[in-house]
């Protein structure tokens, strides 16, 4: 086990590694942000929507969640070019991950919203709030607290799913690692390194999530 060679290779390839990590960050971030926004819309549609809204939303969630992410990525990649949309691999991958994230967030939100009792909606109506107001001041804040831990898990899943983009040629961390390995054959060491980097990113996200969760748990002061 030649660790000194490994370290020199890491330093020699640090550009590619950093660039790969940056791409991983970027595509994960896009997927998480866009996916969450879309997911919230879908979540509301599937929980409170009338039939024309609810059925497509439900279908969307069930179809996307019944498909492996890899199949989703490959489908988006190949089908988009077949129908004339000239996406780059990055764009196709980001789209696929966004769609995946949205279905997850939609399902999480649905679960959180449905666990809130009906009585709260009635109480909101009784004081004259419209549904928009009820959602904004009563339902959503609670659902947020409820759904936070699961949403953090979904965010971590996105980072892990970004590795699948290596299959369609996006130069994120895993593909960069594989390219480095093809030159120096240090399979074990570099895969370990990649693993460590992913672990650190995911662990950091978890910790951030936990501290936000703790901040939200603190009871708000009341004036008696």
């Amino acid at each position: 086990m030649d660790w000194s060679y490994f370290f020199s290779e890491v330093i020699a390839n640090r550009g590619a590694l950093l660039h790969g990590t940056a791409i991983t960050f970027t595509v994960s971030l896009i997927a998480i942000l866009a996916g969450t926004v879309l997911g919230i819309v879908i979540g509301i549609a599937v929980t409170y929507g009338n039939k024309p809204l609810r059925w497509p939303a439900r279908l969307y969630i069930d179809i996307i969640r019944g498909t492996p992410v890899l199949v989703l990525v490959l489908t988006t990649f190949y089908v988009s070019s077949a129908v004339g949309l000239n996406f780059t691999a990055f764009q196709a991958g980001a789209l696929a991950l966004t769609l995946f994230c949205a279905s997850h967030v939609g399902e999480i939100l649905r679960g959180a919203l449905q666990s809130l009792s009906r009585g709260q909606i009635e109480a909101g109506r009784a004081i004259g709030l419209t549904f928009g107001g009820i959602f904004r001041y009563i339902l959503f804040p609670q659902a947020l607290r409820f759904a936070l831990p699961t949403w953090i898990t979904a965010a971590v899943e996105m980072v892990k799913a970004s590795t699948l983009l290596s299959v369609i040629g996006v130069a994120e961390l895993l593909l960069s690692t594989q390219q480095i390995i093809s030159n120096n054959f240090l399979n074990m060491q570099f895969y370990l390194l990649a693993g460590a980097i992913y672990f650190l990113i995911d662990f950091a996200i978890e910790q951030v999530g936990r501290s936000i969760g703790r901040r939200l748990e603190q009871p708000t002061r009341r004036m008696v």
Binding site: K160, A161, Q178, M188, L192, G195, Y198, F199, D202
Partner: peptide
């Protein structure tokens, strides 16, 4: 550790890394 690792990395590590 295992929950925070992408499964693809674990697969590649075992398949390509272990022979070393």
């Amino acid at each position: 550790i295992l929950r925070n690792l992408p499964i693809l990395v674990i697969v590649l590590f075992l398949f390509f890394g272990m022979p070393q």
